[in-house]
Amino acid sequence: MPESLLQLKNISYSYHNLQGETPALSQVSFHIDAGEFAAIVGPSGCGKSTLLSIIAGLLSPEEGTIVFHNPDGSFHYPKIGYMLQRDYLFEWRTIYQNAILGLEINHQLTPENTEYVLSLMRDYDLYKFKDQKPSELSGGMKQRAALIRTLALNPQLLLLDEPFSALDYQTRLTVSADICHIIRKSKKTALLITHDLSEAISLADRVIILSKRPATVKCEVPIHLTLSGDSPLAARNAPEFQDYFNLLWEALSDEKK
């Protein structure tokens, strides 16, 4: 049994304002194994994004601990890539300049790293557009460029905060397939937040269901699809797909009552 890359133990977090306290997370505990693609689903506004911000180190939990077991045995914070709901590519930079933004900030603009970015752009049909401005690209291409920007830093853990929610349905399917392919191929560990059950089942190895606010882990469902392969589109045709969907739907419906 490989050690978990990431372990959350009893994480709690509340938002404070003058009117009072709004608890967002209550005693959340789960783990993610190295190389695993996990998805978190939960009722809207249940604190999913708060959870990702805590894992990314943008917020500190009020209670609880996060433990990382790096493959080399050390416990230091791993490199985390965070993909936001929208691409937020900067219009004053070309696609290539956007993709190397993280390298620039971390002073890692070495020839190897920039070559890696260019190779990712070649793999995902963005090379031709590398000198264009974001507004000249389609929504799906922009989201792929945003993923390359995240991958450029070679993160050990990818956090995906509803990265497809701003796309139209058709683009959403193809982009999620692309991004799933990129993540699987580079053997990244990923944690996806989504409110779309089909998306979670078709992409993830395991789905973690959160309760309504204050969120806590309601149950975890490992996904084993006989048809999965590499394509989340094909996965939607797996015989087990509907059963998983119903299972998750029921777990969530309890929460919606």
């Binding site: 990314a56 943008l58 985390i80 965070y82 936001l84 900067f90 993280g102 900030i105 971390n106 830093l153």
Partner: peptide, 14 residues
């Protein structure tokens, strides 16, 4: 400036 754009910089380690 949209706060998310600034969050993006922080997520990239800035």
């Amino acid at each position: 400036v949209e706060p998310e754009k600034i969050t993006l910089i922080y997520t990239l380690g800035g």
